[in-house]
Computed example of a mutant assay.
Amino acid sequence: METNIDELSSQLSTLTTNSEEIPKLDHRRPLSTFHLPSMSSCPMATDDNNHLLIFHHQRLILFQLPTFEILFFIPTGTFTNCQISDICFYTVSNCFLLASANTIYSLASDRSIELFQKFSNTIWSITYTSTSIFICYLFGASIEQWDFPSKSAFLVNSWVKEDLLETFDQGINCIRAVNQFIGMTVKERNFSWRIDIFDSLTMTRLRRGNTIQQENGLSNWIGILFPIDSFRWLFADGDEGLFLINQTDEQNYQQNNIMKIACNICLLRDVNTRQYNAIVVQSYEVLQIFDVQ
């Protein structure tokens, strides 16, 4: 069933979060575990019906949550010879969007895959608001805003890296939107991360995040966001772990590490209350789902 994006944004914004509401997960028993070895930030996304779609070793796998029952898998070679760089669930059309090279494909509930739109450059990350789809190109070289009225494509705006980042920032890995806000994981000069928040209407920076250090000289590009609401974000950074970022207090941003290893994350909503009640965490070898209520 299709979900109205404004209703979804309202529901997200009412969720209150603090460091105690998503406790440290390392010593908690997961609701379910699925072993899927050799993962390093595999793209994945959840929909509104407790499904998880993940790209792993040239296959798209759709799971039923919370049991991780495999509903189907699709070899990506049937529609593209390139890797899947990002996945999001697009509530406007009630389908998953798959970014591959310079192309976005749609995956519908009947398993049909169609070409959604071709773009000018290699796509690195995708997200959307109630009106637009935002495309982040390779390492954040540029970001474009597109509207799709009546199944046509219309470029609304474009920003190059220099419009968005500071002089010594290296690039952008992941963009995610909620409530007309866009969060970006920014790779800083010393390979550490920063979570900056932008106004999607003007692409002006609203909040500059604090630096999240990478220890032991690590320089990976695993830096994935998931929005809880406009001020609270989950951030997965591989060996550095999973962080709960709280930017509600402008004078004192909070960054709490809640898991030691996390390469990607998704929140799962209760199908009846539509409130978040579980978190899916991807590590290098397993998918796990934890109750967070």
Rank of each mutant, 00 (worst) to 15 (best):
N4D: 15
L8P: 08
S10W: 06
Q11N: 14
L12R: 14
S13M: 15
T14L: 12
L15Q: 12
T16I: 10
K24I: 11
R29Y: 05
L31D: 06
L36P: 02
S38P: 01
S38N: 11
S40V: 13
P43D: 05
M44V: 04
N49G: 01
N49Y: 01
N50F: 03
L52H: 00
H56D: 04
Q58R: 14
L60F: 00
P66R: 09
F73I: 01
I74P: 02
T80R: 10
T80D: 06
S85P: 09
V92I: 12
N94I: 03
C95Y: 00
L98E: 02
A99T: 03
A101Q: 12
L107Y: 11
L107W: 06
I113W: 06
F116S: 02
Q117R: 13
Q117V: 05
I123K: 03
I123V: 06
W124R: 11
I126T: 02
I126M: 01
T127Q: 00
Y128C: 09
Y128V: 04
S130Q: 07
S130A: 07
T131M: 04
I133L: 10
F134L: 07
F134P: 00
F134W: 05
I135S: 02
L138D: 14
S142M: 11
I143L: 05
E144T: 15
Q145K: 13
W146A: 13
W146K: 05
P149Q: 01
P149A: 05
S152A: 12
A153W: 07
A153D: 06
S158K: 12
V160M: 03
D163C: 11
T167D: 10
D169Q: 02
D169R: 04
G171R: 04
N173V: 13
C174W: 08
I175L: 02
N179K: 13
Q180A: 15
Q180W: 14
M184V: 10
K187C: 13
E188C: 12
R189G: 01
R189P: 00
S192A: 13
S192K: 10
S192R: 05
W193Y: 15
R194H: 08
L201H: 14
T202Y: 11
M203P: 07
L206T: 15
L218M: 15
S219K: 12
W221F: 04
I222W: 01
I224L: 10
I224Q: 08
F226A: 04
I228K: 02
F231W: 09
L234Q: 00
F235I: 11
D237F: 08
E240N: 14
E240F: 06
L242W: 09
L242H: 10
F243K: 11
L244D: 08
L244F: 08
I245V: 15
E250A: 13
M259D: 06
M259S: 10
C263Y: 05
N264V: 02
N264G: 09
C266A: 11
L267N: 00
V271Q: 11
V271A: 11
V271S: 14
N272S: 13
T273R: 05
R274E: 08
R274I: 07
Y276G: 05
N277M: 09
A278S: 12
I279E: 04
V280R: 03
V281E: 07
S283A: 07
E285Q: 08
E285L: 05
L287R: 02
L287W: 01
L287M: 09
F290P: 04
F290T: 05
D291Y: 08
Q293K: 11
Q293Y: 04
